[in-house]
């Protein structure tokens, strides 16, 4: 018994070591984005002939050098002040300011010289509009497909579901021609309308609506509520967890969508973040520090959304995936 316990403890330690190693591999690229985005790109230390850049130094620096050098200068400045050497203290303080400026310089540049603020806003408002649109349309459709009987219900459902098997690339060319002929090429309508047509949510909401008890719907009907009022005051509140899961996935998909936006957007003012990042990379003028800062700005909102709504991610995956 004693021996077995010790073995289990060893096992557990081994599991933790393995998992920590795997998570480092998993998170390293994201870490590298943030580390490079804040790396010092120009620093002229006390005994240096010319400024060096730690962004493309060989070997690469594993963390933003500014953090280390800032504290070095801070310590030096304090010592110099204690020793009464005000000139040297002043030098160190200037270095500290320079380090702070340089560490965040590419974020400032992205907002001032490039249009990342605009791209961020475009991405954000498109994602919000599509998310709420999808939530409304798909819950309406999912509700009647799950709870009502009417001629054509099954045919409609199966036609919608069968298109889920068709990869999105099939419609690229016809959609391009259509969007062009409708005269909405290079507008945000070209993104919003196709995104609102996605059908995954109909399937998901229909699955979810099944769990709503019929008695509640009948009670509402007996109370004399109209169909719309029943839907709005009874069905939607009960479907909140399903709506949350669908909303988060829709937001994520739209926020990250890439292939279609690079086809229909040409005007830099209308770019979404992923498209903007691609043009930034293509321009070849941008340093890796600048690119990684852009990547960091695009990554942060999704990371925050994920950390806040984690359980809905899990819910959405298992709801959409598990077939019953």
């Amino acid at each position: 018994m004693y021996k077995k316990d010790r073995f289990d403890k060893l096992n557990k330690a081994l599991i933790y070591v393995m998992l920590f190693f795997f998570s480092i591999v998993s998170l390293l690229p994201l870490y590298w984005v943030f580390s490079t985005s804040m790396q010092l790109s120009s620093y002229e230390g006390p005994e240096m002939e010319r400024p060096v850049s730690y962004v493309d130094s060989n070997p690469p620096k594993m963390y933003p050098m500014g953090f280390e050098l800032y504290f070095e200068h801070w310590g030096d400045a304090r010592e110099a002040k204690k020793a009464g050497n005000l000139e040297e203290a002043q030098y160190h303080r200037e270095q500290m300011d320079h380090i702070v400026d340089n560490t965040f310089s590419s974020f400032v540049a992205l907002f001032q010289k490039h249009d990342i603020g605009k791209w961020f806003f475009n991405s954000f408002y498109i994602a919000v509009v599509v998310t709420f649109g999808i939530l409304l349309l798909d819950s309406m459709a999912g509700y009647v497909l799950a709870k009502k009987r009417f001629p054509g219900r099954n045919i409609i459902f199966w036609v919608i579901i069968s298109t889920m098997m068709i990869p999105g690339q099939v419609t690229l060319v016809p959609m391009f021609i259509m969007i062009r002929d409708l005269g909405i090429m290079d507008t945000h309508w070209a993104l919003i309308l196709p995104d609102l047509s996605m059908v995954f949510g109909v399937f998901l909401m229909r699955q979810y609506m099944y769990s709503i008890p019929d008695e509640l719907l009948e009670a509402s009907k007996i109370d004399g509520a109209s169909e719309w009022k029943t839907f709005w005051t009874v069905v939607l509140p009960l479907a909140k967890p399903g709506l949350a899961a669908l909303g988060i996935f829709t937001f994520m998909n739209v926020w990250n969508s890439f292939l279609w936006p690079i086809i229909v957007l040409n005007n830099a003012d209308l770019y979404t973040l992923p498209v903007g990042l691609k043009t930034l990379q293509d321009a070849n003028l941008a340093s890796f520090k600048l690119l990684m800062s852009g990547a960091a700005i695009a990554a942060i909102p999704m990371i925050i959304v994920f950390l806040i709504f984690q359980r809905y991610f899990v819910k959405g995956l298992t709801l959409g995936g598990v077939k019953e």
Binding site: W32, N256, P274, M292
Partner: peptide, 15 residues
């Protein structure tokens, strides 16, 4: 393990 999945492939490819 899920965090890289919510990050856009554009970002992951860049890094």
């Amino acid at each position: 393990f899920y965090l890289p999945t919510v990050t856009s492939m554009v970002i992951i490819a860049m890094v």
